[in-house]
Nucleic acid binder design. Structure first.
Length: 369
DNA sequence: GATTCGTGGAC
DNA sequence: TGTCCAAGAAT
């Protein structure tokens, strides 16, 4: 409280007005979303995890498919990780799927399949932080637990006109979120707050004239709604160049490997390859990487496709070549598992997006037969 | 506290 | 076309 000057503090009347106006706006303009039509804590939990750093329109088809494939926490808990990753394929941040799977097993084993109602308990589950805990408990059980996701952060930063440095701002915003939260309707209030940020109080060109909080918004009255919150300049992303091998054996099968369970794209399958060293040709790189990682001999052939892909903190270009398998038993020296599969079988394995584009470019049969 | 985690929408 | 940024958490 020390960092909030008394003159800037909201009094009880302001708070009540803010709650009323927001809930009134939400009743008219709130979005109709599938996870708002259920009170099933598991379904809401799934939506909360999928929505982390991911827009609603992207999540919708995944959410429906997920609940068809894993309708209950029990179904998810007994599924194997590969099938879980397959349903998550394309959604990104795959640790979310691994954590959700593990957390489901914990809830089944320790809580008889019921989602705990205490913040401190749900936050012990992998993949559930403070914001997800608040979203889950308020939406599923109508419990008064605050949230602070990207939308709410932007809304409250503008409302308060805060220009504090990140750490202090974070404290203030959590405090505001908790202070404003309507104890009588925490579910609707939190959902309304997120809708406000997602539909009106957007990063660029917010629709202030339509905003129910216009009168109380410090940024609006200062004309700073475009400047607040201040956006951090993005650092230049490094660009990695990767040689990739589509290795065919004499049975028309192609070699894929499963990445280590943790870290980038953990547990997903890929075509083997590695970074092109300075002064190295793509062909040399592929031959070297395959020797180092799989301990087999190949002949590098024609270029298949070139794929550029942007991750959150770097870019890659994959230079993919057909390769003919010559000899040696493939060893999983830098991966978890190796398989020879027919092209038609590739759809059964979870791949990252960039590799799906390789699969699209792949001929239905080996070019060496 | 700073990094590391994907992918696509929007402009 | 490039850039920002999404219902953040884990390390």
């Amino acid at each position: 409280m020390e960092d909030v000057p008394p003159s800037d503090r909201l009094d009880a009347k302001d708070i009540e007005q803010l709650r009323r106006s927001l809930l009134g706006w939400y009743a008219q303009h709130g979005r109709d979303l599938p996870w708002r039509r259920t009170r099933d804590p598991y379904a809401i939990w799934v939506s909360e995890i999928m929505l982390q750093q991911t827009q609603v329109t992207t999540v919708l088809p995944y959410y429906q498919r997920w609940l068809e494939r894993f309708p209950t926490v029990f179904a998810l808990a007994r599924a194997d990780l590969q099938s879980v990753l397959k349903v998550w394929e394309g959604l990104g941040y795959y640790a979310r799927a691994r954590n959700l799977h593990r957390a489901a097993q914990m809830v089944v084993d320790d809580c008889d399949g019921r989602v705990p109602r205490e913040v401190n308990v749900v936050m012990q589950l992998p993949g559930i932080g403070r914001t997800t805990a608040g979203g889950l408990l308020s939406a599923a059980f109508n419990l008064p637990v605050p949230i602070l996701d990207g939308n709410v952060k932007r809304v409250l930063t503008r409302l308060s006109g805060s220009t504090l440095p990140p750490t202090a701002a974070q404290r203030l915003l959590w405090q505001l979120s908790e202070q404003l939260l309507d104890r009588n309707q925490p579910r609707d209030f939190n959902q309304a707050l997120m809708d406000l940020g997602a539909t009106l109080c957007v990063p660029r060109q917010p629709s202030c004239p339509l905003c129910p909080w216009r009168e109380c918004c410090v940024a609006y009255h200062l004309g700073l709604q475009e400047q607040i919150p201040v956006s951090a300049r993005s650092p230049d992303l490094p660009h990695k160049h990767i040689g990739v091998a589509a290795i065919w054996n004499d049975r028309g099968q192609i070699l894929i490997d499963r990445r280590p369970a943790r870290g980038l794209l953990g547990g997903l399958w890929e075509f083997p390859g590695g970074k092109i060293e300075p002064g190295e040709t793509v062909e040399d790189c592929i031959a070297r990487e395959i020797t180092e990682e799989l301990a087999i001999a190949i002949e590098v052939g024609d270029r298949l496709v070139e794929v550029t892909h942007a991750y959150s903190h770097f870019r890659v270009t994959l230079y993919v070549h057909h390769c003919r398998y010559l000899e040696g038993e493939p060893q999983p020296l830098a991966c978890e598992e190796i398989r020879w599969v027919k092209p038609s079988e590739l759809v059964e394995f979870p791949f990252p997006r960039a590799n799906l584009r390789i699969i699209e470019a792949l001929p239905p049969t080996s070019p060496y037969l």
